[in-house]
Structures are given as C-alpha cells and as structure tokens.
Amino acid sequence: MDLLNAIQFESWAEFVDMGGYAFNVWAVYGLFVVFIAVNIIVPLQRRKTLLRDLRRRQNIDAQVALNRQSASVAGAVDNAVNDSVAETAKVVGTGQNAQQGETS
C-alpha cells in the first residue's frame, strides 16, 4: 500500500529512535500533548466546580427566600408586630450577608 510505504520507518525501534534525536523529538511532542491536555482539562474541571457552587448557592438563596416568607406569614397570624419586625429584619439581614458573601 502506498500509504504504508510512505512511512519513514522500517521498524518500531527505528520510529522510537527518530534518527538519533529521540530525546528532543519526543520531549517536544510530549510537551505539546501536555500543553493541549492541560488547557482543555482545566477549563472543564473549573466548569464542574463552578456549576456545583452556583447550584449550591441557588439552593441556599431559595431556602432563605422560603424562611423569609414563612416568617412574615407567622408574624401576621400572631399579630405580634414588634416580634415579627425584629424577625424579618434578622432574616433579611442573613439574606444580605449571603449575597455579599457571593460577591467576594
């Protein structure tokens, strides 16, 4: 076959030897593979952790919103105005903290 004949080497050993420049040729191609692999794998890995963190954050935010809702409902039922105001302020406070924590 033409394609097989076009291969420059007769044997596996000859291929590995690269005409006596094995170290240099293989070092460069090895480096090239590492370079490509790192710059693809690192962004993919980062995407994984990022998605996990963002989801976690989303769940926390949803939880906070839920607490806030139930707190105000409870306040209305009890009609204890002072208590409920204090409670709401606390919950809103934690909500804001969570949001600030996000930006840093």
Partner: peptide, 15 residues
Amino acid sequence: LLFLPPDYQQGYTSR
C-alpha cells in the same frame, strides 16, 4: 511523526 521525510541537514529534528 510518521510520514515527514527527514531534513537533508537536521534529520528528524525538523519534526
């Protein structure tokens, strides 16, 4: 790595 002929001066380092 397989098909490129060696350079007449540098041999396979041309790869």
